[in-house]
Amino acid sequence: VTVHVDGVEYDFDNPEEALKFAKKVAEDKNGTYEVHGNQIRVT
């Protein structure tokens, strides 16, 4: 699973970890996250 944040890609073997990371980053920057299959984009 790849999490995209501001043009940087973070790869996770564990989808739950990826989702947790995306949620935290989105909260920290008052943004949102979208899941597209095995890609998660934080905006």
Rank of each mutant, 00 (worst) to 15 (best):
V1T: 10
V1N: 05
V1W: 15
V1H: 09
V1A: 10
V1K: 04
V1S: 06
V1D: 03
V1L: 07
V1P: 05
T2Q: 07
T2I: 11
T2L: 06
T2R: 09
T2W: 06
T2M: 06
T2D: 01
T2C: 07
T2G: 03
V3S: 00
V3H: 00
V3N: 00
V3Y: 01
V3C: 03
V3F: 02
V3P: 01
V3K: 00
V3I: 03
H4F: 14
H4T: 11
H4M: 11
H4C: 13
H4P: 01
H4S: 10
H4R: 07
H4K: 06
H4V: 13
H4G: 03
H4W: 14
H4Y: 14
V5S: 04
V5T: 04
V5W: 06
V5M: 06
V5A: 05
V5Q: 02
V5Y: 09
V5N: 03
V5P: 02
V5H: 05
V5E: 03
V5L: 08
D6C: 07
D6E: 09
D6R: 04
D6Y: 07
D6W: 06
D6I: 03
D6N: 13
D6F: 08
D6M: 10
G7N: 08
G7H: 05
G7W: 04
G7Q: 05
G7F: 05
G7Y: 04
G7A: 05
G7M: 05
G7T: 04
G7S: 05
V8Q: 12
V8S: 07
V8H: 11
V8A: 09
V8W: 09
V8P: 01
V8M: 12
V8I: 13
V8F: 12
V8R: 12
E9T: 14
E9Y: 11
E9K: 13
E9A: 13
E9G: 09
E9I: 15
E9F: 11
E9C: 12
Y10V: 05
Y10H: 07
Y10A: 02
Y10G: 00
Y10F: 11
Y10D: 01
Y10Q: 03
Y10P: 00
Y10I: 07
Y10C: 04
D11E: 14
D11S: 14
D11W: 15
D11Y: 15
D11H: 15
D11P: 14
D11G: 13
F12E: 01
F12A: 00
F12K: 00
F12S: 00
F12R: 00
F12T: 00
F12P: 00
F12L: 02
F12G: 00
D13F: 08
D13L: 10
D13S: 11
D13Y: 08
D13W: 09
D13E: 12
D13K: 11
D13H: 09
D13N: 11
D13V: 11
N14T: 13
N14A: 07
N14Q: 07
N14L: 08
N14C: 11
N14D: 15
N14S: 13
N14V: 07
N14F: 07
P15G: 09
P15I: 15
P15T: 12
P15V: 15
P15W: 15
P15F: 15
P15L: 15
P15M: 15
P15K: 14
P15S: 11
P15C: 13
E16A: 10
E16Q: 11
E16R: 07
E16V: 11
E16S: 09
E16F: 09
E16Y: 10
E16M: 10
E16P: 04
E16N: 08
E16D: 12
E17A: 10
E17G: 04
E17T: 08
E17M: 07
E17H: 06
E17S: 08
E17N: 06
A18P: 00
A18D: 00
A18K: 00
A18I: 00
A18E: 00
A18W: 01
A18G: 10
A18T: 00
A18Y: 00
A18S: 02
L19P: 00
L19M: 09
L19A: 04
L19H: 06
L19I: 12
L19V: 08
L19N: 03
L19Q: 04
K20G: 08
K20R: 13
K20C: 08
K20L: 13
K20I: 13
K20D: 13
K20H: 11
K20M: 13
K20Q: 13
K20T: 12
K20V: 12
K20P: 03
K20E: 14
F21G: 00
F21K: 01
F21S: 01
F21W: 10
F21Q: 01
F21P: 01
F21T: 01
F21L: 02
F21N: 01
F21I: 01
F21C: 04
F21V: 02
A22Q: 01
A22G: 03
A22S: 03
A22E: 01
A22Y: 02
K23D: 05
K23S: 08
K23M: 13
K23N: 06
K23I: 14
K23H: 08
K24E: 11
K24T: 09
K24P: 01
K24I: 08
K24N: 08
K24M: 11
K24F: 08
K24D: 08
K24R: 11
K24W: 10
K24L: 09
K24G: 07
K24H: 09
K24Y: 08
V25L: 11
V25Y: 07
V25S: 08
V25G: 02
V25Q: 12
V25N: 06
V25I: 13
V25D: 02
V25W: 10
V25M: 14
A26K: 03
A26Y: 03
A26R: 02
A26T: 06
A26P: 00
A26D: 02
A26N: 02
A26W: 03
A26V: 06
A26E: 02
E27N: 12
E27C: 14
E27P: 02
E27A: 14
E27M: 14
E27R: 13
E27S: 13
E27F: 13
E27W: 12
E27D: 11
D28T: 10
D28V: 10
D28N: 10
D28C: 12
D28E: 15
D28F: 11
D28Q: 14
K29H: 12
K29V: 14
K29M: 15
K29F: 15
K29D: 05
K29Q: 11
K29S: 13
K29E: 07
K29P: 03
K29G: 09
N30A: 08
N30G: 14
N30E: 07
N30K: 11
N30R: 10
G31W: 10
G31A: 09
G31K: 04
G31E: 03
G31T: 08
G31Q: 05
T32W: 14
T32E: 07
T32G: 08
T32M: 09
T32Y: 13
T32R: 12
T32V: 10
T32F: 12
T32P: 02
T32D: 06
T32I: 10
T32S: 13
Y33K: 01
Y33R: 01
Y33W: 11
Y33N: 01
Y33V: 13
Y33C: 07
Y33F: 12
Y33T: 04
Y33Q: 02
E34C: 13
E34F: 10
E34G: 04
E34L: 08
E34I: 12
E34P: 01
E34S: 11
E34V: 13
E34M: 09
V35Y: 08
V35T: 05
V35C: 08
V35K: 05
V35L: 07
V35E: 05
V35G: 03
V35D: 03
V35A: 05
V35R: 07
H36Q: 12
H36W: 11
H36C: 14
H36R: 11
H36K: 12
H36L: 13
H36V: 14
H36G: 05
H36F: 14
G37C: 08
G37N: 05
G37Y: 05
G37V: 04
G37Q: 06
G37I: 04
G37A: 06
G37H: 05
G37W: 04
N38C: 07
N38T: 09
N38W: 05
N38G: 06
N38H: 08
N38K: 05
N38S: 09
N38F: 06
N38Q: 07
N38R: 06
N38M: 05
Q39F: 12
Q39T: 14
Q39H: 14
Q39N: 11
Q39W: 10
Q39M: 11
Q39G: 05
Q39A: 10
I40H: 01
I40V: 05
I40N: 01
I40T: 01
I40C: 01
I40L: 03
I40Q: 00
I40S: 00
I40G: 00
I40E: 01
R41P: 03
R41C: 12
R41F: 15
R41K: 14
R41V: 15
R41T: 15
R41E: 10
R41Q: 14
V42A: 01
V42L: 04
V42I: 12
V42G: 01
V42N: 02
V42F: 05
V42W: 02
V42R: 00
V42Q: 01
T43W: 15
T43K: 11
T43I: 15
T43V: 15
T43G: 07
T43N: 14
T43H: 15
T43E: 12
